[in-house]
């Protein structure tokens, strides 16, 4: 029975088995490993092309906080994306402020959970996270710089040449690796440790009666658009802010008349921290937002049909509903994230 072939086949098999045994020991906890929270969908980002490493993350962080990305060295990503507000803008900048104090046209959104987003910006014009900074660098009311100049400035800087060598084993800084580094930094901005998360993942957290009532009311009244664990369906909708639009939103990208006045349904994670609200910073508080949905909406032909009912426009909300919904929305604040030293400027 035991021919030489069987002997060798068994030997090979034994080697395979013992190899897989060696993979068993668990790895040490690595803060630079991208992890998907248990209650989140799978990420969309192309991690195979650009996995997160400590050196890449540190480089991305240095770039994020450095005004070297702007034309005159006066503004960085951090000007409009601040950790204390979940990397949205500060409330003192309802619209973004770029070089020469130039005012943008929209409220800078939070950068959390970008790895799970299919499209970026209020109009969804950018479809890959790597390309997001190009828009911010080149916009004349943001950083107003060319990507060629950014690369030249980084190459002339020994600190950055060393950091790019450490992160990517390259001698010359190039734009794609600059974008890789920034994506590594933003990809790690996973915010999934709110009171709500600890409740929904059965990690010992609980919600109060009012918060639970708010969750139920929110799911019923708001969940059609703010769906899933990121509290957005990533669609573009007109939510009745205006009847004429200087900023036509999604229409800028699709050129469809039916997209005039539509903007992305925003994620509501950390929403209590990210005032003011809406693409044009129309509302200062969550109360104002809910009052708008209750009785403040105005008609334009692209109005989302979700809001059209026999009484006119809006979502029927009692004052008690609003209080409960806001109590629930407050549970989406991730205090660990906004205090996480991982993201602190070095």
């Amino acid at each position: 029975m035991t021919s030489p072939v069987v002997y060798w086949a068994c030997l090979v098999l034994t080697v395979f088995v013992s190899c897989s045994d060696e993979d068993e020991p668990t790895l040490p906890v690595n803060r630079y490993e991208f992890r998907v929270p248990e209650n989140f969908p799978q990420p969309i980002y192309t991690f195979d092309n650009n996995p997160v490493t400590k050196a890449g993350f540190d480089l991305g962080k240095a770039l994020f906080y450095d005004p070297i990305l702007s034309r005159d060295g006066s503004a960085s990503c951090n000007n409009c994306h601040i950790q204390a507000t979940a990397f949205a803008d500060s409330p003192v900048h309802p619209l973004s402020v770029g070089v020469d104090n130039r005012l943008g046209i929209r409220n800078a959104p939070p950068l959390t959970n970008m790895a799970f987003f299919p499209e970026f910006f209020w109009d969804g014009g950018v479809t890959h996270l790597d390309f997001v900074p190009i828009n911010a660098i080149e916009a004349d009311f943001e950083l107003d710089e060319t990507v060629e100049n950014v690369v030249a400035k980084l190459n002339a800087n020994k600190k950055y040449r060393d950091m790019f060598r450490d992160a990517f084993d390259i001698e010359e800084v190039t734009l794609p690796y600059t974008l890789y580094a920034l994506s590594q930094f933003t990809n790690m901005m996973v915010s999934a440790n709110s009171k709500y998360d600890r409740y929904i993942r059965n990690e010992g957290g609980s919600l109060t009666a009012l918060e639970l009532e708010g969750l139920a009311t929110f799911s019923e009244k708001c969940g059609a658009c703010h769906s899933g664990e990121l509290f957005t369906d990533f669609s573009y909708r007109n939510n009745g802010l205006d009847s004429t639009f200087a900023d036509t939103g999604r229409n800028r990208i699709t050129a469809l008349n039916s997209d005039i006045g539509k903007f992305r349904v925003p994620s509501l994670r950390n929403v209590a921290l990210t005032a003011p609200y809406m693409h044009n910073a129309r509302f200062k508080t969550l109360e104002e937002v809910l009052d708008h949905y209750d009785n403040g909406m105005v008609y334009y032909e692209t109005i989302d049909e979700t809001f059209v009912n026999q009484n006119g426009l809006g979502i029927d909300l009692e004052e008690t509903d609003k209080a409960a919904i806001i109590a629930f929305l407050n549970t989406l604040t991730d205090f660990d994230f906004v205090q996480d030293t991982l993201f602190f400027r070095n």
């Binding site: 650009n50 479809t127 190009i134």
Partner: peptide, 25 residues
């Protein structure tokens, strides 16, 4: 090609690639 993200060589906007930032591609 676009959805693989940042790219070098002839696809690098800082190296002569013709690229739209606002409607990325």
């Amino acid at each position: 090609g676009v959805q693989e993200g940042a790219a070098g060589g002839v696809l690098d906007p800082a190296n002569g690639a013709w690229f739209w930032n606002w409607n990325a591609g």
